[in-house]
Amino acid sequence: MGLVEEISAMRGGSGHAGRLLGEFRRTALLVPLSTDDDGGLMTGWRGGVRWIYAFTDEDSLARFAHARGAGHREWEYLAILGARLVDAVIPAVDGPTGVAVDVADEDGSMLFPPVVGIVPDACAVDAEPDVAEAV
C-alpha cells in the first residue's frame, strides 16, 4: 500500500500506525516553497505547532492552492522523502514542528505531530527531558 492508502486505512479504523509511519518515511512528498522572502518551506501554525505542508501528489497540492485562493499561479515545490523531513529538516526548525499531509483533502489528510516515534526525540514535545538532552 502507498501512503494515501495507509492514511485511508488509518482514518477508516483498520490502519496500523507502524505501517503508516513507515510509508510516510518512504514517500517522496511535495513541499511548497514559501512565498516570503526567506524562501523556506511553506508552513502554518496551529495549536502552538508549526506544520510543514506536504502533499502526496500535484493534484493534492493544486487543491491546497485553490483552497488558499492562489490556484491561478504556479507553485514551486521541493520533492523530499518524509524521512528527510522529520530527520533533517525538523531538527533545523526552532520550536515544535510536525508535518501536515494533504491538508486540503478533508477525508485524506493526516498530521504527523512532533512526538516521540515520529520526530527525533530531541524535537519531540513529549520526550523525557533527559532523553531529549542526551541526543
Rank of each mutant, 00 (worst) to 15 (best):
G15W: 02
P32R: 00
D37M: 09
G22W: 08
M1S: 11
W51A: 01
W75I: 12
L41I: 01
R25H: 07
R84M: 14
V93Y: 06
E133V: 13
L3R: 07
D94N: 12
G48E: 01
G40P: 02
F64Q: 06
V135K: 04
D126A: 07
A62Y: 12
S109C: 12
I52N: 03
L21M: 11
A88E: 15
G44E: 13
G47Y: 00
V135D: 14
W75G: 01
A83K: 10
A67Q: 05
R19A: 14
G22R: 11
D37K: 10
G48A: 04
D36Y: 09
G69I: 05
M1N: 06
G48R: 02
E6Q: 13
R84V: 10
I80T: 08
W75T: 02
D121M: 13
I90F: 04
V86N: 02
D107L: 10
G108Q: 09
L81P: 04
S8P: 05
D87L: 08
G69N: 10
R19D: 12
S14C: 13
L111K: 15
V103S: 00
A70L: 11
D36H: 15
P91I: 03
R84F: 11
A65F: 00
G15L: 09
G13C: 08
V4Y: 11
L33Y: 11
A83S: 14
G15N: 09
Y77A: 08
T35H: 12
G18V: 06
L20E: 10
E76W: 01
E6S: 11
E76S: 11
R68H: 07
A54S: 03
R11N: 13
E58S: 12
E128Q: 05
P129H: 00
E23R: 15
A65W: 02
L41W: 03
R84Q: 14
A122E: 10
V4S: 11
L29H: 03
V99G: 05
A17G: 14
D130T: 12
A17P: 14
M42W: 03
I52E: 04
G39K: 01
E74L: 01
R11Y: 08
D59M: 09
R68M: 09
P129T: 00
